[in-house]
Simulated scan of single mutants.
Amino acid sequence: MAQPANDDEITLVIDRSVAVVLFEFLSRTVDDADGEALTDFIEDEAEIPALWALLAGLESVLTEPMAEDYERRVIAAREAVMKRFGGAFSDKDD
C-alpha cells in the first residue's frame, strides 16, 4: 500500500546540472557566514533558513559535492546550464 503524501512536502524535479550549480551557489552564499553575503537581498529572515533547507535537500541527493573532482564537475555543470538555458548576462554589450 502506498504511503499517503505529506501535504507539507513537495517533490521538485530539476536537471542534475542545475542542481549542482545551485548547490555550489548556495554553498558559497548561504552556508558561508550564515548567509551574510545575501543580507542586502533578503526581505525576511526566514529566507535564509529556507535556502539552508534547499541546500540540505540538494546535498542529500547529489554525489558530486563529495567527488574528488568536484571543481571540474561544477565547471561542467555550469557549461551544461549555459548551453541549455543561456546566461543571464549574455545579451549585455561589453
Results as ranks from 00 to 15, higher is better:
V61I: 15
A50Y: 02
L22M: 15
V20S: 01
A19Q: 04
E47I: 04
Y70D: 02
G35E: 01
D69Y: 05
W52F: 14
A53H: 09
G57K: 09
E45H: 13
L22G: 00
A67I: 02
R78A: 14
E68S: 13
L54W: 01
E68Y: 08
F25Q: 06
E68I: 05
F41L: 15
D31R: 13
S27E: 15
A19F: 05
A77W: 01
R72D: 14
P49Y: 07
G57W: 03
A37W: 06
A37M: 12
D44M: 01
W52N: 14
P65T: 00
F41C: 08
R72Q: 15
D31N: 13
E36M: 12
F41K: 03
R73D: 07
E64I: 04
P65A: 06
D31Q: 12
L54M: 14
G35M: 05
E43L: 12
R28S: 12
V20W: 00
A67F: 06
Y70R: 15
E68T: 13
E24R: 04
E45D: 15
L51F: 06
M66V: 09
A19P: 05
L55C: 01
A53V: 02
V18E: 14
L51E: 05
P65F: 04
A77H: 03
E47V: 03
E64Y: 00
L22R: 09
F23H: 15
D40Q: 14
R73P: 03
L22C: 12
S27Y: 13
E43D: 12
S27D: 15
L55A: 08
F23D: 08
I42V: 15
G57F: 03
A50F: 03
V18M: 11
L54P: 01
V74L: 05
A67Y: 01
L26D: 09
D69T: 10
E24L: 00
E43T: 14
A76P: 02
L51H: 05
L38V: 02
E43I: 12
R73L: 14
V18Y: 00
Y70N: 04
I75T: 10
W52H: 15
L58W: 00
D44W: 03
E45L: 07
L54Y: 06
E59V: 00
P65N: 12
R73H: 15
A19G: 11
S27L: 11
A46Y: 09
